[in-house]
């Protein structure tokens, strides 16, 4: 993570949070020590122990952030700005969280960006369709989601084993028959970018398309809901 000033590094951190869907412990090596953060579903959830030796750390440690309005949110900003002082770049590592919070715990990255008054998080909106889908798929965590990337009617890339891709291709074909047959009942004619998520019993599929570019994804509902939110960060006006 790079930035000319602590506030720039804070903006880079918010972008990092915005790209993190699965529960992760983000560890930032700063000039003032290592700062550990719980992040999931594109939300900052808590400052985790071991705590850095900084003012206010003890009051913030291991306390879930309930919402944007909570006083912990500006307090954490102050602590991070302290930690980032004197740094031009930070090393960031991510690993699976050993303690998970509820999926609705934490402050979403877009709201966090506003609360912390850092730069706009969505410069990617200007990307052309091909780069948009590339950036979207690259931003997804690898573990629970398999996907096919499709250009026109041709599969051009995949995540998962050959066997998984074959099964996913069969599912995509079945889904797309109904989807295209009923498209006009689902979306307004002026829609430019469409995302469709359908699920049950904790499993789901997601189909996103813009122009000739599309992707079919399958995985746990919670992961695909996060993926759809990420997709929206690229396309929302």
């Amino acid at each position: 993570m790079k930035g000319a000033a602590p506030q720039d590094l804070l903006a880079a951190l918010v972008t990092e949070i915005d790209e993190t869907i699965l529960p992760r412990r983000l560890s930032l090596t700063t000039p003032k020590g290592v700062v550990h953060l719980a992040v999931a579903n594109r939300r900052l959830q808590a400052l985790l122990a071991p705590l850095p030796d900084l003012d206010g750390a003890a009051e913030l440690g291991d306390r879930p952030l309930p919402d944007t309005e909570d006083p912990l949110v500006p307090a954490l900003k102050t602590l991070l700005l302290q930690a980032f002082e004197g740094a031009a770049a930070l090393e960031v590592s991510a690993r699976r969280l050993d303690r998970t919070f509820g999926s609705d715990i934490g402050v979403p990255a877009n709201l966090l960006g506003r609360a912390w008054a850092v730069a706009d998080l969505a410069p990617q909106k200007e990307l052309p369709p091909e780069e948009m889908v590339t950036a979207f798929l690259k931003g997804l965590d690898t573990a629970p989601i398999t996907w096919l990337r499709i250009r026109g009617e041709e599969v051009t890339d995949q995540r998962g084993t050959a066997e998984e891709a074959e099964a996913l291709g069969a599912r995509a074909a079945v889904f797309l028959d109904g989807y295209f047959a009923k498209f006009e009942e689902l979306f307004p004619p002026q829609a430019r970018a469409c995302g469709t998520l359908v699920g049950a019993a904790g499993a789901a599929m997601l189909f996103v398309e813009v122009g000739e570019e599309s992707a079919f994804l399958s995985g746990p509902e919670v992961a695909l809901l996060g993926a759809l939110a990420q997709w929206q960060s690229y396309v929302a006006e």
Binding site: A200, A203, E221
Partner: peptide, 24 residues
């Protein structure tokens, strides 16, 4: 659309429980 997506949760069975349609 629900019928086309149903193979994803075929082992659990049952109808679609949730759907989202998103545009810009």
């Amino acid at each position: 659309v629900a019928e086309g997506a149903a193979p994803v949760w075929a082992e659990a069975g049952g109808p679609a429980a949730v759907a989202l349609l998103a545009t810009e």
